[in-house]
Computed example of a mutant assay.
Amino acid sequence: MADLLTFGLLSLSSLLIIVNPLAVALIYVSLTDTMEKADRLKVAYDANRVALFVMLTFAIAGGLILQLFGISLEAFRVAGGILLFGIGMEMVYAKTSRTKMTATEKYEGIDTDDVSIVPLAVPMISGPGTITTVIVLMNEATDFGIYAYALVFFLCPFVIGINYYMMKNADIITKYIGPREYRVIGRLMGILLIAIAVQFVITGLRTAFPILIGGL
């Protein structure tokens, strides 16, 4: 039970940090500031609905996709850890991760009528980092049984629910959290994400090379 609780806390923190609802809310405000309130709420709903669909799709089919391309779980854990490490470093240095949204995508999003799918749902909410995290967590769940799988499936809509709530209340949030506060929070979350990423890499290397890691 203790191991399952630890896995649950790791899964929750990983998904919250990589989705980063605060950053999404701030980007959402900048992309929808000229819209009517009803249209903005529809954008928030559609973006989170699509993002949840993407997350659950890869939670279910991620393992099959790896098998299809002949990618081992250990290789994906290491690769995923490196990707998350890079995202964490960008957060520490207060940069918007290029795996979430490029400058071009943000510029094109401002000029388009529908920003819910691109760039908000993909790649802002459910980008490569989120997809990688979901697949790794689902494969990590094999060590803990059916309850761990159910936990990851529950946490996906739970995190999306938090993200949707923050997007709906983005105007209020931006009154209290300015650029300086956001950078401080972002750096702290980046440090945590780096630690999680390193743990993913260690787990992958320990499984693939038990002698080198000393995991005999």
Rank of each mutant, 00 (worst) to 15 (best):
F153N: 08
A44S: 15
I135N: 05
V134Y: 10
V198Y: 01
K100F: 12
F76T: 07
Y28T: 09
I71N: 10
T207C: 05
T132K: 09
R49H: 04
K106V: 08
G62M: 05
G8F: 12
G204P: 11
L66K: 02
G8R: 15
D113H: 04
L5V: 13
A170C: 11
Y28I: 06
I172N: 15
G127P: 06
I71L: 11
M1R: 15
F76D: 13
A141H: 09
L15H: 02
I18M: 10
I196Q: 09
I18H: 08
M166Q: 08
A75E: 10
D46E: 13
G129F: 00
Q67I: 05
F200P: 12
L120T: 12
A79W: 03
I185F: 04
V50N: 01
N163S: 01
I185R: 05
F144R: 11
M189A: 05
M35D: 15
V184W: 04
G190Y: 06
S97A: 13
V122K: 14
K100R: 14
T96C: 07
P128E: 14
I117T: 12
R206F: 10
A61I: 08
I202H: 01
M167G: 01
T102W: 04
P157V: 02
D114G: 09
I191S: 07
M91L: 14
S11L: 06
L151W: 01
K175V: 00
L73M: 11
E74T: 06
T203N: 13
F76L: 11
I125K: 10
P179L: 05
D143P: 02
G161K: 11
E36P: 01
I125E: 00
I110W: 14
V29E: 15
M166R: 08
I213R: 15
I18Y: 05
G81R: 05
P123C: 04
T203Y: 04
M55H: 10
G127Q: 10
A208P: 06
I146A: 10
L188H: 07
G215D: 09
L64H: 10
V159W: 01
T112W: 02
E108K: 12
V29L: 15
A47H: 04
G204C: 10
I213K: 15
V24C: 07
K175T: 03
I87T: 13
Q199M: 02
L10S: 07
T6N: 15
S116Y: 04
L66F: 04
L66W: 02
V118L: 12
I172F: 14
I65T: 08
D143R: 10
E74Q: 08
K168P: 02
I173Q: 02
L120D: 05
T174W: 00
L22Q: 12
T203D: 12
N163G: 00
I82W: 00
T203F: 06
P210Y: 01
L68C: 00
F153D: 05
F144I: 11
L120H: 08
V92C: 11
V29A: 14
L52D: 00
D3S: 15
L205I: 04
I82N: 03
K175I: 01
I202F: 04
I194T: 01
L120K: 13
A38W: 07
T34M: 14
Y182H: 06
A150T: 03
V159T: 06
L151S: 00
V159A: 02
K95V: 06
